[in-house]
Computed example of a mutant assay.
Amino acid sequence: MKHPALASLAMVVALSGCANSGVTMNDAVQVASAINTATPNAGTSATRTTITELLNVFAATPVSGQQALGGTAALLGLAQSQLGGNQYAQLAQQVPGLQQITGSNAVSQLNALGMLSGKSNQQSLLSTALGNTGSPAGVNQAFSALGMDTSMVGVFSQLLLQYFGSEGVSTPLLQSLASVWGVQR
C-alpha cells in the first residue's frame, strides 16, 4: 500500500459493513490487469490505468470491483456537478481517464471489465442511479443501487481524496472536493 493511512481507513470500512456482490477485489484487479494488457478496446490506456489504480485503492476494503468503480463514479458525478469554474477539468487533467468513469460513463467501463455481464436489469438500474448523481441524495441512491450502505460515502470520499493527493492533485482542489463530498480533509 502506498499510504499507511489507507490501512486505518480500510479498518473503518471493514467495521462499517458492506454488502459484497461476490466479486473479490483480487478478482477485479486481475480482470483489470488482464484488460489493461490484452484488450485494447476497453477504453483508453489512461482510463485502464486509472481503473486499475482505483481498484488497488479499494483492495483492502470489503467492496467488490463493481462497487468500487460505481461508488467512485457516483462521487465524481457529484463533484462534476458541484465544483466551480474549471476545477473538475483540472481534476480530470491531473488524473487522466477520470472523465470516462464519471457518473453514468462508468457503466460502459464496468461492461468492458465484464463486471455487468448477464446483468441487464442491474445495468439499467445502475445507469439510472449513476446518471442522477448531481446531489448528495443522488449519490446515496447510487450507493444503495450498488448494494452499499450510504455510510460508505464517507469512506469512499476519504480514500479518493488520498488517491488524488498521491496523483498530485493540488491541496485547494482536494479541499473543494472534500467540501462537495461533505468530509473533513
Rank of each mutant, 00 (worst) to 15 (best):
R48C: 07
G43T: 13
S108F: 06
L76V: 08
Q82I: 11
A89M: 03
I35D: 05
T50M: 08
L54Q: 10
E53H: 14
P62D: 02
E53M: 12
G97L: 03
A46E: 14
Q94W: 00
V63A: 02
L98R: 02
I35T: 12
A73Y: 11
Q90C: 02
G22D: 13
G65A: 07
A14F: 05
T37F: 03
N20W: 03
L55K: 03
G71K: 09
Q94K: 05
A28S: 15
T24F: 03
R48Q: 13
I51T: 09
A79C: 13
A10G: 15
Q67N: 07
Q93W: 00
V29W: 06
P40M: 06
S16A: 14
A38E: 08
T44M: 08
M11W: 03
N111F: 01
S108W: 01
L54A: 09
Q67C: 11
N26I: 08
Q100T: 08
A79P: 11
A42P: 03
Q82M: 15
G97Y: 07
Q90K: 08
M25K: 13
L113A: 11
M11Q: 06
L55A: 01
E53Q: 15
P96D: 08
L15C: 01
A112N: 11
A60W: 00
L91Q: 10
T72R: 12
V95P: 02
T47E: 10
C18G: 11
Q30L: 06
V63P: 00
G85W: 02
C18P: 02
L75A: 06
G22S: 10
L9K: 11
S45W: 04
L75Q: 14
D27R: 12
T52S: 12
Q90W: 02
A73V: 10
S16R: 11
E53D: 15
V63R: 01
A79E: 11
S64P: 00
A106N: 12
Q66V: 15
A74G: 09
S33Q: 13
A14Y: 03
V23P: 00
T37E: 10
N20K: 12
A32F: 05
S108M: 11
Q100M: 09
L91F: 07
N41A: 13
L9A: 10
T61Y: 09
S8P: 00
Y88C: 10
L55E: 01
Q66K: 12
E53P: 00
P96T: 08
N36F: 15
N105Y: 07
Q99G: 06
M25R: 11
N36A: 13
L75T: 10
T39C: 11
S33C: 02
A79L: 13
A34F: 02
A60G: 14
Q99R: 09
A59K: 14
A89I: 00
V31N: 00
G97M: 05
P62V: 06
L55V: 04
A112L: 01
V95N: 05
T39N: 10
Q30W: 00
A46M: 06
P62E: 01
C18D: 12
A42F: 01
L15P: 00
P40A: 12
G17V: 02
V107Q: 07
L69Y: 05
T47D: 04
G103V: 14
A32N: 05
V31P: 00
Q67A: 15
A14W: 07
G114T: 11
P40H: 07
A42L: 03
V29H: 08
A32I: 12
L78P: 01
G97F: 04
S21R: 15
S104N: 09
L110C: 12
Q67K: 06
T72M: 12
A112S: 13
A7R: 13
V31R: 14
Q94T: 04
N36Y: 14
